[in-house]
Amino acid sequence: MTDNLIIKGIEFKSRLWVGTGKYKDFQETKLAIEASGADVVTVAVRRTNIFDNKSDNLLDYIDPQKYKILPNTAGCFTVEDALRYSRIARETGISDLIKLEVIGDEKTLFPDVCATLQATEILAKEGFIVLPYINDDPIMAKRLVDAGAAAVMPLAAPIGSGLGIRNPYNIKIILEQATVPVIVDAGVGTASDVAVAMELGCDAVLLNTAIAGAKDPIAMATAMNHAVKAGRLAFTAGRIDRKLYATASSPIEGML
């Protein structure tokens, strides 16, 4: 029996999604992504380096035939910019997926929820598979689903902070209500954070800095690969209840 994540008919082979930013070079990016086992990789939309056409292209290292490319709208602070970046991203012909980020504040990089909601509605109507980045806010998660989001991507903690899941209870409420997949996005620091997200029942985890910023990104990518599988398996296995007092594992009967 397969336990693969499916969004809008697209089947995902891994529940770990990874970004491609902040790596030393494209070779390291490639090796880390291979080690992570991810089949979704996020990318940003930026001006081509037209005056140096000998410079490498990311997609020479991350084959769009092999990986699902998930463009983001990182750096967009308005609905208009997010729409512009999304439409340009789709015009490359590589992907209808969009990781929608409409940032509200430079210091926290928290989302502008009103703008995110507006942009989600417009892009979903245009046929995009919209995956919005949001706070760990159960009400906004519901509103985004009503607006046409194909999944919701609540943050664990601020982008790049490595703080891990700050509010597991809100994530749990989002999960209880969710009628679409829930993907924890941003703020993960290490493998145990990924395992916690998966054990809560999240459908996937998206991370970038936790791997790219590690001292040994390839080793951390491997750790994340294991963590996402271990966490998912623990979730489906069904953990024991938490109890305040001890319950002996060895029998009393037969003691001397």
């Binding site: 970004g19 491609t20 930013g21 790596y23 940003a44 490359t92 982008i159």
Partner: peptide
């Protein structure tokens, strides 16, 4: 000039003096 040009129209879209052209691609990002 802020309008996306479809790939099929690349050979017919003639540029004019003063046009603002953006050529974008994907780069590393999270």
């Amino acid at each position: 000039n802020l309008s996306i040009i479809k790939k099929n129209d690349y050979h017919t879209c003639v540029l004019k003096d003063g046009d603002k052209v953006e050529i974008v691609n994907f780069v590393g990002g999270g």
